[in-house]
């Protein structure tokens, strides 16, 4: 069973709601980062919501995904809870990673979310491995790697796809072509115009879909999933989308014009889908407004939860390094370098 059935009215409402939740989450994260409440840096998914939600809705709940530095949307699309996500952005103990990961490393392995990732191109090998694991165990599961146009230039992405196609693994490689790799336009990073043509090198299907249309991404991933579980191997999908915000919050964006942003904003994936559901009679305009307000309210609650959550105890810095107890960590914790606990005299 797909995670959300797009053929039903309920499924369509839920898909819209999840996109709205991502938009609200990232708007809030951007605001609170600007206010200095969130440490580090954040990369927002605004504009790309249809890709994450379309893909994760068409997967089954047990399927795996790997994510990117721009991972909030993938998390929400995979069903992670926004309060624990926001708490992680705040570095709180109640966060998904107990405050150790932050925005770039939110993970929930039990939910199949193998981690946002701070290294461009690092996710695809992990997805190949998760697909290998599923194949070896005979599980009816696939692994989908989200990665950006910039990652297509990374050697390890090539290696991951080659391995998955050579071994016929149930993997899906989904490029979110948002037109910029960090601060450099995609055409300055690739000689190839259509990144989906990459697939030809691996003798696997590759195609491009409208990444601003959640129905297109959904259908593409549903078909790729079917191919994967049938044992026919991986699929390479390019979702044509656009990053409305900078690479990171605070990016002064010398690499593009406001006109370009506005042109893509007119194709907003959330408004577009909402309008289609209104036209189709699935929702009224008032119901769309209510859904949006409810999403924003959930995120306000999540932010309040994060604000009121607990700072980790400094001693927690020494936890979670290993499954086993490593004597070095207990020796060094707190500053002592000596196995006897720091006595400076002897004999």
């Amino acid at each position: 069973m797909v995670t959300i059935d797009i053929e039903t009215d309920d499924g369509q409402r839920e898909i819209l709601r999840r996109m709205m939740l991502i938009r609200a989450f990232d708007n809030e994260a951007g605001d609170r980062f600007a206010d200095g409440e969130i440490p580090g840096f954040v990369h927002l998914y605004i504009g790309e919501e249809a890709v994450g939600v379309g893909a994760c809705s068409a997967l089954e709940p047990d399927d795996y995904i790997t994510s990117t530095h721009r991972g909030h949307g993938h998390c929400i699309a995979k069903g992670l809870e926004t309060d624990k996500m926001m708490a992680e952005l705040y570095g709180k103990r109640e966060g998904y990673c107990n405050g150790k990961g932050g925005s770039m490393h939110i993970a929930d392995v039990d939910a199949g979310m193998l981690g946002a990732n701070g290294i461009v191109g690092a996710g695809p090998p992990l997805a190949t491995g998760a697909a290998l694991s599923a194949a070896q165990k005979g599980e009816d599961r696939v692994a989908l790697a989200f990665f950006g146009d910039g990652a297509v230039a990374q050697g390890q992405v090539h290696e991951a796809i080659n391995l998955a196609s050579t071994w016929g693994l149930p993997a899906i490689f989904l490029v979110e072509n948002n037109k910029f790799g960090e601060g450099t336009p995609v055409e300055k990073q690739h000689n190839l115009e259509n990144l989906s043509e990459t697939a030809e090198a691996y003798d696997i299907p590759g195609f491009t879909v409208n990444g601003m249309d959640v129905t297109a991404v959904y259908e593409a991933v549903e078909a790729a999933r079917e191919r994967a579980v049938n044992g026919d191997g991986p699929t390479f999908i390019e979702a044509d989308t656009y990053r409305y915000r900078g690479h990171f919050e605070g990016d002064h964006q010398p690499y593009r014009d406001d006109d370009d942003i506005e042109a893509w904003q007119r194709r907003c994936p959330i408004d577009a889908f909402a309008n289609r559901l209104v036209d189709a009679g699935v929702l009224t305009e008032d119901e769309v407004d209510e859904l949006r307000a409810a999403a924003e309210a959930e995120i306000e609650d999540a932010a309040a939860f994060a604000e009121n959550a607990t700072d980790p105890d400094p001693s927690e810095a020494y936890e979670d390094m290993y499954d086993v107890s490593v004597p070095e960590l207990s020796t060094y914790a707190g500053g002592s370098l000596r196995a006897d606990g720091g006595s400076t005299t002897d004999q």
């Binding site: 997805a127 491995g129 290998l132 599923a134 050697g155």
Partner: peptide
């Protein structure tokens, strides 16, 4: 399946090993 020859692709198959280890292998 269990004694698996790989391409000469250390980043790929070591990375796949990491992904497999994170998912129960």
């Amino acid at each position: 399946d269990r004694i698996r020859d790989t391409p000469i692709s250390e980043a790929g198959f070591l990375g796949a090993g990491v992904g497999a280890a994170a998912t129960g292998s």
